[in-house]
Amino acid sequence: MALPTREEMYAALEERHGAELQKKLSEASVAVCGLGGLGSNIAIALARAGVGRLHILDFDRVDISNLNRQQYFPEQLGMLKSDALCDTLSRISPYCEIQKDCVKLTEENIPELLSGEAIICEAFDRADQKAMLVNCVLETMPEKYLVAGSGMAGIGPSNTIITRRMMKRFYLCGDGSSDVDDGMGLVASRVLICAAHQANAVIRIIAGEYDV
């Protein structure tokens, strides 16, 4: 079947989300840093919602150990995550503008790489890398909105995962304590809960709803 046109896709989104929200979503530009269990799921949720432009960044390749929770397919093993996820996002939302970067984010390159998006999602897996990105964005780019995730390992109760507004433009999702370094594995369902919190926080910011 032929792909729907850009106008047909937009009309279908507008019918579900309302004209005002859909206009904001289609004009929005969001960076997703880290394309693992959090980032791949956040990006897909935003693409489905009709966010107009996504900037996806990761330095890694798809590994068999990722398939329990990350949005990749066995035939994508070995591909760059930025390439593999770009393919999937383009299938979901063919008119979404996607910028992909295979890069390891550092304090040195973050200000330039993330200069183009008003909203930044932190979706790394290592605690020290999460802290590095959050500190760097808050210190050097105070005009950005930042949505981070911390604490979603294991199979603890769903309702311990929450969204907190830590600062005016800094939101933190997760239970704050379930650490993968304590031996708890990451399970799709609970990672998805945290990713959904982050994606919903982004959509609320785009809509101009800033409380939690």
């Binding site: 897996d125 290592r126 020290d128 999460k130 981070a148 911390s150 979603m152 933190l172 304590s177 990451l186």
Partner: peptide, 10 residues
């Protein structure tokens, strides 16, 4: 003061 502690996993 708010000390935001990050834990691993993502």
């Amino acid at each position: 003061v708010e000390v935001v502690r990050f834990v691993g996993g993502g």
